[in-house]
Design a protein around this nucleic acid. Sequence first.
RNA 1: GGUAUCGUGGCCGAGCGGCUAGGCACCGGUCUGCAAAACCGGCUACAGCGGUUCGAAUCCGCUCGAUACCUCCA
Length: 488
Amino acid sequence: MENILHVYNTISKRKEIFQPLRPPFVGMYVCGPTVYGDGHLGHARPAITFDLVFRYLQHLGYKVRYVRNITDVGHLENDADDGEDKIAKKARLEQLEPMEVAQYFTDRYHLNMDQLNVKRPSIEPLASGHIIEHIEMIKKILEKEFAYVINGSVYFDVKKYNDAYAYGKLSGRILEDLLSNTRVLEGQDEKHNSYDFALWKKAQPEHIMRWPSPWSDGFPGWHAECSAMSAKYLGNHFDIHGGGMDLLFPHHESEIAQSQIANNCEPCKYWMHNNMITINGQKMGKSLGNFITLNDFFTGKHPSLEKAYSPMCIRFFILQAHYRSTLDFSNEALLAAEKGLKRLMQGIETLQKITSSATSSSDISKLSANCYEAMNDDFNSPIVIANLFEGLRIINAVNDGKESISAIDLESLKNLYTTFVFEILGLTNETENNQFEIMDGLMQMVLSFRQQAKTNKDYATSDNIRNELTKLGIVVKDGKDGSAWSLE
RNA sequence: GGUAUCGUGGCCGAGCGGCUAGGCACCGGUCUGCAAAACCGGCUACAGCGGUUCGAAUCCGCUCGAUACCUCCA
């Protein structure tokens, strides 16, 4: 079967055949985190979504350069009255260097991503390390007179751009509507029009993070960083640009405009956007009391969590939904995911033990084809998982002696699970650890004692052993061919 | 109000015009000293109202509802 990958392109609103600009190379840029707080679900979903894309493209044999930035400059506090830098504000409050704060949260972000088994990108550029590139890009836009300077700040002239190109083509917006829908704001009198956006902002006196530029001591505008850094590492026109749906407007819209003027072309061929996450049907927000960080999930410390959920449980849960669907988190849903994942992992352990026969009673190649078909259809991981569960049924049936599998099919089935579960979906078996062998040896001994008691019909002893093990979190499972054990 | 995405069984979630999604929960059964696991079977939905069609969860329109964005910050 041929692998023809289809990707949903936000800009055309349809699935398109994925054809890289310069095969076998693929350039992918994804908007990364702003490092001024702990990672939460809003970080996990895009990271895992594009990790899946990254992994699958690599699996298909593409040489992927995956760039994901760290935003560590120019953030204004939401409720700040004087527009001061988010990082600078926190830094002053805590008596830390701004870069110390950025470094601290960058490290914590990396730790969380490692826990979720999200592969590190090929390049992870810092916005603060690319001020020169920002300035050069802004210069180009000024030269072409699609921007203007006021009081040391530089703004992009959206109206002029819209006359030549179509501003709003990605998000389906029309400039006139934007005007009529914009509230009258105080302090925005610098801009010619409310929809113009900053390329460079002059720093207020209290700003700590600032850089010299031809226009003022200041910092780059938000949209500038992604355009400057993606062009630097992937070229002016690359394959995939990804991010959350919340970034569609104005961020990505403005990136298109900037790149069009600065580089004479749109930044990328395919736009991919993951959908948002809700918690119990509500959006996540600090004011709603349901703001849950990734560490909260891993430790179970948040009041609205009934228990801790492991990183793999979170990853599996996210992969059980298609990336373009909204996804609702609840204890019940996470519990279901946890059990499903456990069953999947135990099935894979069973797979290593089953023996082959002369013939197969199931069509393994069909299973494999289904998995590829699902991935090729815009990375449909839930369908892949459904097929893996179907395979589980076969594995267990063979293990029970109710079905058979040939040596060749057994090999390809093992291959299938290794490839899809571990390599592509990026799941890991968390119950595995290096003490397993010692544990298992101990357990085999205990179980043999128990078996002896059972042979003697001394069920009080055998039940007692089982109960004591249960207290330790070890589950004993009696089968036809003896007993097995697992950690609860 | 505008733009976008969506509204599926007890819960989570696939589905892209006709054919079983899948997981979890629940209820039977097989197996088992008991239990668990595993297996077999059951539960069988598509927000509402119209329309297109031989046929719609799937296409179109309207209504209701949800989430994000539409402003400063990123």
